[in-house]
């Protein structure tokens, strides 16, 4: 295992840790809104770290750009979804 792989493994483990944190928050927090906090923030940090690990492994600018794009779109999907879910949880079902 070379230096590059080492960095990727560290990033990957950190990413998995944040995914775990998101799930733990999802299961432990008491209300819908707090669970949303855990999911959006922890999972997106997790996705960012996993993407960073894969970009280091691939060492190719095209793949890195694609990974960055996927991360940004995931961020967008997560914030929009979080806002819509939070709004409906507050207002109730119409």
């Amino acid at each position: 295992m070379n230096f590059q792989d080492g960095i990727a493994v560290v990033l990957l483990i950190a990413g998995c840790f944040f995914y775990l944190a998101g799930t733990v928050g999802l299961l432990r927090f008491g209300d819908v809104h707090s669970r949303l906090h855990a999911l959006t923030k922890a999972d997106n940090l997790g996705l960012m770290l996993v993407c960073a690990a894969l970009a280091v492994l691939a060492a190719d600018w095209r793949i890195s750009a694609l990974l960055a794009l996927i991360w940004l779109l995931g961020l967008l999907a997560a914030t929009v979804s979080a806002h819509l879910i939070a709004r409906h949880a507050r207002r109730g079902w119409e």
């Binding site: 998101g22 799930t23 999802l26 819908v32 669970r35 996993v50 995931g74 979080a82 879910i85 079902w93």
Partner: peptide
């Protein structure tokens, strides 16, 4: 217990599946 909680799980599935596919 609420439908919003079930949608939360959909959010979790989305972000996790993307990471799994990339890996």
């Amino acid at each position: 217990p609420t439908a919003a909680d079930r949608m939360l799980a959909a959010l979790l599935f989305g972000s996790t599946t993307v990471a799994v596919l990339l890996l």
